[in-house]
Design a protein around this nucleic acid. Structure first.
Lengths: 343, 343
DNA sequence: GACTAGTGTGGGAGCGCTCCCATCCTTCCG
DNA sequence: CGGAAGGATGGGAGCGCTCCCACACTAGTC
């Protein structure tokens, strides 16, 4: 508040006040060890007195790093997924970034046009790295970003053999755990409502379901498999189909809670009691599962932890400065069956 | 990929290629009218050929604007609110910002420490303005930000007479609409489960409830009012209390869907049928409402539209450059009753 | 036909940092 | 006791833009 000296103080002003050079202040700010204790204290005082905060734009320009990362979420998926999924993910990412003192740039991509604009942003060097949520099987974005020389970490993968670093939950394990639990409850005509099979996550859960049957010595039966699309309506449709084809089914593994909710509605309408006649298991452990009647047994994914892990991996990738070209890193986090009264 | 010329092309290189000066290229990029059509074309071609994208840091440094805005969400609230609330809000903000070609910096504030760090970010001039979600009654943050000279727009307000620009939904109208609907269905012992009364939104919905009763000529009755906290557990507690005090109640207006879900559970346990014995209305029109059994009548807020409006207001505020000190702007968006079978 | 008004245009002067080289002062060694 | 080897420090040279002033030119004006 020094009269004419409007605007925020600069490095130079701090230097003047502390009676040292610009370089020295910069060193103190950035924690370089090559500064005497005495000088460090003097500078720290000047910083405090002036309320100095380094200008981010200048830093980015001179140092060519932004201390910001982008999280990209396709809008279509944001609507579709179990509601709190992305919020939990964001929460995890945000927490980890805050610890590393980095900024989170959130990008919801709505259209092809917006996707291209996003690539422009990247080229404008606004961020040091990119996190990608729910990438589809044929999405070239990860490769494009790498071409720009930016580190990427994805949430989920596009296929079994994903070349780009990713963090995923154990979707196969999820399917297996669900089936194993149903088998343990004495069910042996277990159907499944899958997600859209062009998504790896859906295929993985289906794969887990099949593995679970095999492990229990139950024969696979394609009539017991029906494809949904992660929406309630899709769940209803798939359930009706299943009931048509196999009225004798005694359990359903739905690849998401929302689809399970749809399935539950259809089962009710068909006069089946849950869990007495048909046992039901979902995936996500969303609030919906808790509030359903009966409360839904569901496989929980550690979403927030996935977010944290992604952020951690990305930061590491950024720091190593694309030097060591070591193995692309992959991480698969375990899921957990939350048992409630729907089975 | 021109051999030695590593890194991204600069303004200067575009200028050289187009055979013009730096200033001219800058003018073309920024759409200044003072450029001949011919030059404009030549520059555009050079830009395209080189794949030039302006460096954001340099722009920010030279022009002292970042083309980014921050959206601040208190983490505590993020957990508490009806789940998709913030995602919808983000969606609206994001959409509007994308149109204006601005970046969204998302900040989840978890602790006092993080809040202070956030103020540092602001001081580092990373953003041109701030959007604040769910600010509490005694939160000094809006004023702090204004002191830094940054425009602010809030989602919701801290009190009836909020001095800072905000966008809110018509919470009073929400309460009134709910009560009016219940009255129209012949209910006259209408209880309410409120939110935490230190939040304006909770007080407003309660106020609407009371206004609705008055308008219907029903006497107010404090025994029919019980405070929840926007959680399911809080809804259950409040509902039990109400049932204790007034076993003869025939309708409940819960100030959120999640609390309504809690209330529904308690009502069931108490052997009341919904809607036959007790009619139920919630607020938010969240997915939970749709999936409940019976599906819940609920008052919808235009959350996404609130996000868009906030962003629009903020952008306007930024553009006018704190010149015209006109009235702080407030906007209250209408709510809508979505009737389902719970009443 | 000299004079005023514009239009386009070029390029200098920063914006506030980081990087890095040169300098100075110690300290330690033979 | 001279010289080598470091540690601490100052400050020049950018980073890639925007701003703005100066300088052509071109058209009009009396």
């Amino acid at each position: 508040m020094n009269g004419r000296q409007s605007g925020r103080p600069t490095l130079e002003q701090v230097a003047a006040r502390a009676g040292v050079g610009r370089g020295t202040v910069s060193r103190v700010i950035n924690g370089s060890p090559r500064v005497s204790e005495q000088t460090r204290t003097a500078v720290a005082r000047a910083v405090a007195e002036l309320g100095y905060v380094p200008n981010q734009a200048a830093r980015a320009l001179a140092g060519s790093r932004t201390d910001a990362i982008a999280l990209v979420i396709p809008e279509a998926e944001a609507r579709l997924f179990a509601e709190p999924y992305f919020l939990d993910l964001i929460r995890g990412v945000s927490a980890e970034l805050a610890e590393a003192d980095k900024q989170l740039l959130l990008t919801l991509v709505r259209s092809e046009q917006e996707r291209q604009r996003f690539e422009q942003y990247l080229a404008a060097q606004r961020v040091d790295g990119v996190l990608l949520a729910s990438v589809h099987g044929d999405d070239p974005l990860p490769e494009r970003i790498r071409e720009l020389g930016l580190p990427v970490v994805m949430n989920g993968r596009r296929s079994e053999a994903e070349p780009v670093p990713y963090v995923d939950s154990d979707n196969i394990g999820a399917g297996r755990a669900a089936v194993a639990h149903l088998v343990a409850r004495g069910r042996d005509r277990i159907a499944t409502v899958t997600g859209p099979l062009d998504m790896y996550v859906a295929r993985a859960r289906l794969g887990g379901y099949r593995a679970g049957l095999t492990e229990a010595g139950l024969p696979p039966d394609e009539e017991l498999v029906s494809a949904g699309d992660f929406t309630e309506a899709g769940g209803r449709r798939a359930m009706r189909l299943l009931l048509d084809r196999r009225p004798d089914l005694d359990a359903v593994f739905a690849a998401s809670d929302v689809m399970a909710a749809g399935a539950l509605g259809v089962l009710r309408e068909a006069g089946r009691r849950v869990p007495e006649d048909v046992a039901l298991v979902g995936v996500d452990d969303s609030p919906v599962a808790r509030l359903m009647d009966p409360p839904l047994t569901s496989v929980r994914q550690p979403i927030e932890e996935m977010g944290r892990t992604m952020a951690r991996m990305l930061i590491q990738e950024i720091q190593k400065g694309s030097a060591t070209p070591e193995e692309p890193r992959k991480r698969v986090l375990p899921t957990e069956l939350i048992v409630r009264s729907s089975c």
